[in-house]
Design a protein around this nucleic acid. Structure first.
Lengths: 181, 181, 181, 181
DNA sequence: CGTTAAGCGAGACGGTACGTCTTGTCTTCGT
DNA sequence: ACGAAGACAAGACGTACCGTCTCGCTTAACG
């Protein structure tokens, strides 16, 4: 494993930018290690030195964009907080490149256990944990899944609309399953 | 577009069987049009004549297995029916080849709109519609998603257990969102 | 082998015409059994019933055109006759579809012994024999090759012009090798 | 167009060797880019990077063998030199793999203008030019064709023997067309 | 201050899969 | 029974991408 301290940050960023650019321009199918290297003006070797493959690069490009917009905290009440998060999810991921990329990553993760683990560790868990801490009664994981599963499910399958109204409904329903709700 | 009536049913079946065999043996990554053709003793041209690509073949192989085991109808009560379907989902798809394949297909569908549409049309909708008809009050789609989204979500992300207990919990929670529940 | 008497002459002709048409339109590379069958409105099976393959069809199409223009006999003198034949060769085969086809057939014959034999039997020998009979002294085959080999050679390799002047020169040179010349 | 200096000479040689091996073992019909790549332990892409197709590879394999045996120079007299070259041609190409390959290449060149040009440039012309320079009177091209056309013609059509006696005869005849002969 | 080890751009390489093409056989119909 | 239509097995074609590798060049750390 190479020495992190000698890493060229410009190269790092150029790779992520090129990946994002390719995603925006041509979708997931336009993303290949060759294409990223060419667009970033970088040797393929350099990419494979720092990432295991294009899935990992794409995940990092996704996280960089997703992380830059943290959900607005609202400690007032659990209901308010969940509703804010659910609506925020809708705004960020429905009908956007970011949402499509999330779906693609989740799709790619089905045949790439490392990507699946990274996705859980760096995306799902960090978003669940703060909310989980707010749910003191009942089954926190159940409540969170009742909120976020329907949003992701519709995003992935496209079988129905995902909008603020739907977000509100799933939050309401989830809270019914919460003893304190 | 070739004439369906001239299709050789043995070839049709051999392709689906070979695809399934490859899936069981080596997982999704072992499935390629070349491999299917070789294992089925079939020309690649024949596969491309009847299917647009390997995704479509795999979908049909999946549907053939999934269709052969219809969920047990239980018209007694909505709660009973939903619980039966949810538990049936767990039995069939959690920790099984069929479940892994469903995830792979959903994953592949993220970059293959045709596959996505076929999946909706031939798998999701046929399973939703009968249940939807039973839900006469409130928002049927919401209730169904509250049941099935968490099951699929956990299957896809693997962030938590999916078992009968969880199935029961999501059914119970979903019914709370149902006026008649 | 099927019964020749039951053969449909219209089909026979349609195949030859379609082959020639393809040759004229798109060159040798446009000729395939599928294309011939489609253009002739004929089943592939029918073609394979009466010919061993596309080379044989093309040979017959070639012979039909080549045969329809027999060289003008000139029994006056050997020199006159050879010159007439050589010039006739130039007129018919240099820079024409017929000449290109002859080259293609000779080319294909290098990997198709049956075609090579047919070409010898139905094209080369019938053209040599009448002339051979006129050469009563010396080595008739040598004289004929001294005339026709340079013409074919230049046609095949394209390394120099083939015109009436060249035809005359090779005839003159060949006759020097003829005792009676 | 790739950088010649970065070419791996071992790969270059392995491809030519594999091609020759296939030719010797199974004839021209056994030569395919797939087969060459497999036998040489080389990716197909590598072959297509350096050659336009299998014809070009086969030509180079042919030239490598043909070049390794230059005709013996004999500056004594034109007659001696031509006779030596003609007999040399017979020895090398009549009844040998090399001769069969030359015929195949000439055949393939009929539908491949690039191959035809390469064949002229790298094989026919280099063999003609030195001899051409020796023929100071008359029409050098005519004399050369009177010698080499009959040899090639019989090799291609197989309608008669090609041996030393025939080689001597065509040389004798050709020199009769030479003013200084 | 020079050496040396690494990062890096570039891209050749072996390999796998893709989707298309052609060949020659076989099957299904219609007539 | 012949013929049209075309499905079929086989396999070659030329391309794309993957992940490894080998070149030189630059650049940072260390002697």
């Amino acid at each position: 494993m190479p020495d992190q301290s000698r890493r060229n940050p410009q190269v790092h960023q150029a790779v992520l930018d090129a990946t994002w650019e390719l995603l925006v321009t041509g979708g997931w199918s336009a993303v290949s290690v060759d294409a990223i290297a060419a667009k970033a003006g970088v040797g393929k070797r350099t990419i494979y030195r720092w990432w295991p493959g294009k899935n990992a690069v794409a995940l990092e490009a996704f996280l960089a964009r997703a992380r830059s917009t943290p959900p607005p905290g609202s400690p007032a009440s659990l209901a308010e907080t969940l509703r804010a998060h659910a609506r925020h999810f809708v705004d960020l991921y429905v009908g956007t490149r970011l949402g499509a990329l999330l779906c693609e990553l989740l799709g790619a993760a089905q045949s790439d256990p490392d990507l699946a683990a990274s996705l859980r560790e760096h995306w799902f868990l960090p978003r669940r944990e703060p909310l989980r801490a707010l749910i003191t009664a009942g089954d926190p994981d159940l409540v969170l899944d009742l909120v976020f599963a329907p949003l992701h499910y519709r995003l992935l399958t496209g079988h129905a609309e995902v909008d603020h109204a739907f977000a509100d409904k799933v939050v309401t329903a989830a809270l019914l399953a919460h003893p304190a709700g």
